[in-house]
């Protein structure tokens, strides 16, 4: 069952990604991108990361891609805009990409995962996969843990251990990202506001 679902989602994700590469129409590319990203969200659900999956759907599919299409429409100088890339570039890029892929896959396959797990176990005493407080049954109820971690409390690390100093979690990164988003919001609004150049410099 899991294998079946994985196959479906992985095929959709990879197929969508390849379709993005091969497609020449931007909006179609966006559509395939949605398929690819949505399937990735499915993979996330399979990996017990339900919150991440939901976020992926909401932000990527619902937000980012809509934004991209919006951008397409704002910048379209004609209907069904296609800017074709040359076949030579395509071949070159696919060659490099294949090399890259091959290298990554070979590397991944060479890793001895069980051996690594054993090493970790010998170093830390317990299996790194069985952390107290973290959901081993894998039902994917990660929302509370993630929320607490973003607010500075780590259930998965602190519960059940007699630790002097509780971890601080991700409070600071969370705040930084918040501020970063605000900055981005303002920056994007500033960059995108309509400016009418009096004279466009011919050179440069």
């Amino acid at each position: 069952m899991e294998l079946l679902l994985f196959t479906v989602f992985a095929a959709a994700a990879c197929g969508g990604a390849i379709a993005v590469v091969l497609s020449q129409n931007v909006v179609r590319m966006a559509f395939y991108l949605v398929i690819s990203l949505g399937s990735t969200a499915g993979l996330f659900f399979m990996l017990n990361a339900d919150f991440v999956g939901a976020t992926q759907l909401l932000i990527y599919v619902g937000g980012t891609v809509v934004l991209l299409i919006f951008g397409v429409m704002l910048t379209a100088s004609g209907p069904f805009l296609t800017i074709k890339s040359s076949p030579g570039d395509m071949v070159q890029a696919i060659l490099v990409g294949a090399l890259f892929l091959g290298m990554v896959v070979v590397t991944v396959l060479q890793v001895d995962w069980d051996g690594n797990a054993a090493k970790l176990e010998s170093r830390y005493g317990v299996s790194s996969l069985e952390r107290p407080g973290y959901n081993q049954r894998g039902e994917g109820h990660t929302t509370r843990s993630i929320g607490a971690a973003l607010l500075g409390a780590r259930f998965d690390k602190d519960l059940g251990k007699n630790r002097e100093q509780p971890s601080t979690g991700y409070l600071l990164p969370f705040e930084i990202v918040s501020v970063h988003l605000l900055v981005v919001l303002i920056g994007a609004a500033y960059l995108a506001r309509a400016k009418r150049r009096v004279n466009v410099p011919s050179e440069f």
């Binding site: 559509f31 759907l57 599919v61 891609v65 299409i69 994917g140």
Partner: peptide, 23 residues
Amino acid sequence: DVGLFLALAILSLEVLGIILAGY
């Protein structure tokens, strides 16, 4: 656990279809 979140996320997908239709 993320029911409402997912519901909103999926609702927002509807928009995508409409944009695609329009385009």
